[in-house]
Simulated scan of single mutants.
Amino acid sequence: MTDNAAGEILADVHRGVGRILLNRPEALNALTTDMVLAIDRVLAEWEHARLSRVVLASTGPKAFCAGGDIRTIREHSLAGDAGASERFFASEYRLNARIAEYGVPVVSLIDGLCMGGGLGLSVHGGFRVVTERAVLAMPETAIGFFPDVGASYFLPRLPGAIGMYLGLTGHRLDAADALYTGLGTHFVPSHELEAVGDALADHPDEPVDVVLSRLAGRSPVARSRLAAVRGDVDRAFGAPTLGEIEDRLGHLGTAWASSALAALESASPHSLDVTHDLLARGRQRTLRECLDAELALTRTLIRTPDFLEGVRAALVDKDRTPVWRPARQGRPRRGAESSQ
């Protein structure tokens, strides 16, 4: 197995199946620029090989990929190094597009955390195997950022208003929820995950879905909790404005609605405005157009006070008490007085 990015990416070809393993377990496989470039380079090299599939996985059980190394992006912003941040996001989004357009099926094995950039690696590839330990989320509004890595393309294409709900609140999905939404495609227990690569290699001429379904059929999955509140999700997050979303949640008065409302009220007001507009427009855009729009947004948003404060509170000081600036545009918002 070949080492790349100082051993943080391991890659090889085994019986016609390309394997890329994320190997930065101490950082939950948070993506650096070097890691992104290494994955992209391997995939580019394999375009000329005779592979039947590519598998993306992790060497550790805690995380597939917890996202991008956003703490380093904050350091670049504080240092005024816009070029370093530009290289990271441009490289990451180029990799997202490559995975989406890759010539052979890409299968991601999601065992543990899969957030932000982890979804960018997995969701564009066609097949996402989740285990009972899988946790999927786009939690960016909680750190003053926005759902990127093509989220403005894939979230609006989830059933009903689920994508808007996930993008605005950062709600965490378990395996059952991931399968219900389509972010996960198959379930395999964690102790059987190593069998996936061998099964794909054993049956190179069978459709990937058939091979994975055969493995998945051995283990039943619990009922999705998100499915139980789907009607309320669509009713509230299908509203045309953020203000109406909050109003509808307030009128529902259920435990789920209160939790969703609390998530909105704790997020960056500016990030919520940006995210709502981005997801509303994303349904009309191609993936490439969505990635271009997201890249343009990163250039300004990573320098905003909310981004610097959100990452500080979540990842630097870890006090979880960000003090947001009021949204520059938009409506009056509950709790806005406390952020002044």
Rank of each mutant, 00 (worst) to 15 (best):
D3E: 14
A5W: 03
G7V: 09
E8D: 05
I9R: 07
A11H: 08
A11C: 10
G18V: 10
L21P: 00
R24N: 15
A27F: 12
A27W: 08
L28I: 04
A30Y: 01
A30I: 02
D34Y: 02
M35I: 03
A44R: 14
E45K: 10
E47N: 11
A49W: 04
A49F: 09
A49P: 01
R50D: 15
L51V: 09
S52F: 02
R53P: 09
V54M: 02
V55W: 03
T59Y: 07
F64P: 05
C65L: 02
G68A: 15
I70S: 05
R74M: 09
A79K: 09
E92D: 13
N96A: 10
N96E: 05
Y102S: 00
Y102H: 14
P105W: 00
P105S: 02
V106P: 02
S108D: 06
G117A: 13
G118S: 04
G118N: 03
G120L: 00
G125I: 07
G126W: 01
V129C: 08
E132Q: 15
A134S: 15
A134L: 09
V135H: 04
L136A: 13
L136V: 14
T141C: 15
I143R: 13
G150N: 10
F154Q: 07
L155Q: 13
I162R: 12
L168R: 08
L168N: 04
L173D: 07
A175V: 08
A176R: 06
L179P: 01
F187W: 04
P189Q: 03
S190P: 00
E194D: 13
A201M: 07
V210L: 12
V211W: 01
L212A: 05
A216Q: 14
P220T: 06
R223V: 13
R223F: 00
R225F: 01
D232H: 01
V233Q: 08
R235Q: 12
A239H: 10
P240E: 13
T241N: 00
I245A: 12
E246H: 02
D247K: 08
R248Y: 03
L252I: 07
G253F: 03
A255C: 00
W256A: 14
A257G: 10
A262N: 05
L264C: 03
E265D: 15
H270D: 14
S271L: 11
L272C: 06
V274E: 14
A280K: 08
G282A: 04
C290W: 14
E294L: 13
A296D: 15
L297T: 04
I302W: 13
R303I: 00
F307S: 07
L308D: 10
E309D: 09
E309H: 06
G310H: 09
R312H: 13
A314V: 10
V316T: 15
D319R: 11
V323T: 12
R325V: 11
R325H: 10
P326S: 02
Q329T: 14
G330T: 05
R334V: 08
A336G: 01
S338D: 14
